[in-house]
Simulated scan of single mutants.
Amino acid sequence: MSYDPPRPAGRLLLTPEDREAPARVRRLRQLGLGERWDPALDAFADRLAEMAQAPYAMVNFLVENGQFFAGLHVPPVPPAGDGTVPEFARVQPRDHGFCPHVAARRRALVLEDVRDYPRFAGNPVVDTFGIRSYLGAPLIDSTGTVLGAVSAADVRPRLWGRAGLETIKATAVDLMGRIERSAADGLPL
């Protein structure tokens, strides 16, 4: 199986190496995830956006050739700029956004202003979608495999705080439990 290799910028690795890609892809296939969007995961992303009071929220699975947003909440009108922001597609390259960093770290990531971090400030979603803050937590299944992440993002700097961190972590654990119960029971989410 292949995956997009990390892209170095000088000596700074912008997209982390994904050593778990083959195991993750196998596990996603076992669970029937990562190939189609799911209305239940869109509803989950909608609730997450409401809880976080953020214009963007995602259930993101890191798939063989990039990222797949099986659950996605985007604003009906771009929240910043002149309205010419491109559509936020369900499939994105690995170097777009911050969920690959969450997966590589295997722990939550809080970026109150992405422009404060050279590693993240140059990410394509900053310029393309105007993303300025990010809150994400890994989706780790019972086998210890990181399948992806749940996240919220905003076009303005945000003080997510400890409450935001605890909420996103609890949200990830809750969703992973739902996914595994659904798969075990052979039922839809």
Score class of each variant (00 low, 15 high):
His96Val: 15
Glu35Asn: 09
Val91Phe: 15
Val102Asp: 04
Asp95Ser: 13
Pro93Ile: 10
Arg162Lys: 12
Gly161Asp: 08
Gly71Ala: 05
Asp18Pro: 06
Leu12Ile: 10
Gly148Gln: 02
Ile179Val: 15
Pro79Asp: 09
Pro157Trp: 01
Val125Leu: 06
Arg7Glu: 11
Gly148Lys: 01
Pro118Asp: 09
Arg115Thr: 14
Ala43Cys: 02
Ala40His: 09
Ala104Val: 12
Glu35Pro: 08
Pro124Thr: 02
Gly136Val: 03
Ile179Pro: 07
Asp42Lys: 06
Leu165Met: 12
Pro188Trp: 05
Gly81Cys: 14
Gly97Thr: 11
Asp46Thr: 07
Glu35Leu: 10
Arg178Gly: 10
Ala23His: 03
Ile179Trp: 11
Ile131Leu: 07
Ala172Gly: 15
Leu159Asp: 08
Pro6Ile: 00
Arg27Ile: 00
Gly144Asn: 00
Gly186Pro: 11
Ala183Asn: 09
Glu64Cys: 03
Arg156Val: 11
Ala45Tyr: 04
Leu13Asp: 04
Glu64Arg: 05
Phe129Arg: 02
Asp46Ile: 03
Pro93Ser: 15
Arg26Ala: 09
Pro76Thr: 13
Val77Tyr: 13
Pro100Phe: 09
Tyr134Cys: 01
Pro75Leu: 10
Leu159Glu: 10
Val125Phe: 04
Arg47Ser: 09
Val91Lys: 15
Gly136Pro: 06
Arg158Thr: 00
Leu159Ser: 11
Pro78His: 11
Arg105Asn: 13
Gly71Pro: 09
Gly177Pro: 14
Ala49Glu: 05
Ala170Thr: 13
Gly10Tyr: 06
Thr145Leu: 02
Arg181Thr: 11
Thr171Lys: 12
Val25Met: 02
Thr15Val: 07
Leu189Phe: 14
Thr128Asn: 06
Asp46Pro: 03
Gly66Thr: 05
Phe68Glu: 03
Gly164Thr: 07
Arg115Tyr: 05
Ala103Ser: 14
Val114Cys: 12
Leu187Gln: 14
Pro118Tyr: 07
Tyr56Met: 05
Phe120Gln: 04
Phe120Lys: 07
Pro39Met: 01
Arg24Ser: 00
